[in-house]
Every structure is written in C-alpha cells, then in structure tokens.
C-alpha cells in the first residue's frame, strides 16, 4: 500500500508517528530502569542539550563547519568526476583499462585515506575536504562510467546519425543518458562522503559535528552525543530530501527512466 498523495498531512503524520512512539518508549525505559546519564540520557536531557547548544551558538558553528566541508568537497567531486567518468565510459578501451583500477579505488575511497590525507595536508579543513572529495570521486566516476556504457546503442547511433559533435554529445546524450546511474553514484558517494566527514572530523579538526561528538565522548556527556547524532541524521535526511530526491524527480523520473537502485 502506498500512502495516498492527496493527503500530505496524513503522510506526514504517518512519517512522524513512529518517531513519537520511539520517544515514548525511550523515555519510559530510561525512567523505569534509571540508567545514569553517563550511560544513556533521558529524552529531556537531549532536548536540554540541543537547546543549550543552540543558545550558545555552538551548534551553529559545528553545523556550518560540517556543511561547508561537505559542500566544497562534493562540488569538487562532481566537477572532476563527471567529465572523467563520461570520457572513460565513451571509450570501450579506456573503460576496460580503468574499470578494475576504479573498483580498487572505490573500495579504498574515503576513510582509508585519512592517515595519508592528514600527513599530506596536516590536520584541519584541507584534509577533511580531501576526504569528502575522495570518498565521492571514485564512486561517482565509476557509476558515471557504468551509466554511459548502459546507454542503449540505438540512442548513440541515432545521435551520431544526426551529426552530433563531441561537446553536444557530452551535454545532450552521454550525461543525461547516464543520469540514472549518476544519481546512484551521488547517493552512494555522498553516503561515503558524509561518513568520511564524521570520521575525519573526529580525528582531524577542532570544529564540526564529528568534533562535537569526540569532545562529548571524552567527558561522557551522552546527552550531547545523542543530540549530535540526531543532528547528523536530520541533516542527512534534509540533504537527501532537498537535493537528491528533487534532482531524481525532475530528471530520471520525469523522463521515465528508472533510477538504478543503490
């Protein structure tokens, strides 16, 4: 059964109800067992932590630092990976050569680069942005390559038989044709990038949500830990709903091309 589109309020209610239930269970269990705050916080503790983090401006600093890094890293990744992936996909020789290298690199991308990135770029923004870029770059390149190779041959032939030049071929045929796979690559890549960001911030910076987690862990402030985790989850959902889902709706779905599932 899919939720009916005609009643958005009901859909929202269905979406929120499970969270309400979760909060109730959480509050009840903590109240009944009386676990100490240094092991697990009560719901109210987390709300209080969120409020005080907001009031002190701390929350804003961390969120802004994390979002800035993700934004820079992913823009760099998109700008570098798409042309590279399309170029590789358009040539059977190049893609045969690079595909195994890319598979190897996708496996490594992101977190495994943290030691070398911090060695090369020092602790700080540079290393974190590098990790986000790196985490996305390989996944995006590989999926773009696959996407281009999956464009049905008759479409390529149709374009060629109408005299399409190289530049036009890229913008009008190869890129849109590969888009279902590119969207998958973006999803997977951003997922890696987001995780890489948190890990790199825990290890290598002095601002950002990962750093907030790391600080709170040192003082056993479980309320701040859980509050930061909630923020991380909400931010990801917001990015997914506000950026990826509309992109998918306006292109792949509008054109009747099914997106390759991650």
């Amino acid at each position: 059964m899919t939720a009916r589109r005609s009643t958005p309020t009901r859909a929202v209610a269905w979406f929120l109800a499970p969270f309400a239930a979760l909060l109730v269970v959480w509050a009840a269990v903590v109240a009944a067992t009386g676990v100490p705050l240094r092991i697990f916080p009560q719901v109210t503790d987390v709300v209080a932590a969120l409020v005080s983090m907001t009031a002190s401006g701390e929350l804003f600093v961390h969120v802004a630092a994390s979002l800035r890094r993700v934004l820079i890293g992913s823009v760099l990744a998109i700008v570098t990976a798409l042309p590279f992936g399309v170029a590789l996909g358009a040539s059977p020789r190049l893609s045969a050569f690079f595909a195994p290298l890319l598979r190897f690199s996708v496996a490594l991308a992101g977190i495994a680069w943290i030691p070398i990135a911090t060695l090369w770029l020092g602790y700080g923004d540079g290393a974190v942005i590098f990790i986000v870029w790196n985490a996305m770059f390989f996944a995006l390149t590989y999926n773009t390559l696959l996407g281009v190779r999956r464009i049905p041959l008759p479409l390529l032939r149709a374009a060629r038989s109408m005299g399409t030049g190289r530049v036009r071929m890229f913008w009008e045929i190869l890129l849109p044709g590969a888009l279902p796979s590119v969207v998958t690559g973006l999803r997977v890549g951003l997922g890696y990038g987001w995780r890489g960001l948190v890990a790199a911030e825990i290890i290598a910076t002095s601002a950002g949500l990962g750093y907030a987690l790391f600080l709170a862990q040192k003082t056993f402030s479980t309320d701040v830990i859980i509050a930061s985790m909630v923020i991380i989850g909400v931010l990801w959902l917001v990015m997914d709903r506000l950026l990826l889902a509309p992109l998918e709706r306006r292109t792949v779905q509008r054109w009747g091309m099914t997106a390759a599932r991650p």
């Binding site: 479409l155 149709a158 038989s161 109408m162 045929i173 849109p176 044709g177």
Partner: peptide, 14 residues
Amino acid sequence: RGVVFQNHALFPWK
C-alpha cells in the same frame, strides 16, 4: 541518412 529504429531510440530526457 536518417535512421528510424525498431525500438524508436527516442531520447527519453528530451
């Protein structure tokens, strides 16, 4: 030489 393909080969994104 214009080609009409069996499975149309229309560009779905256009």
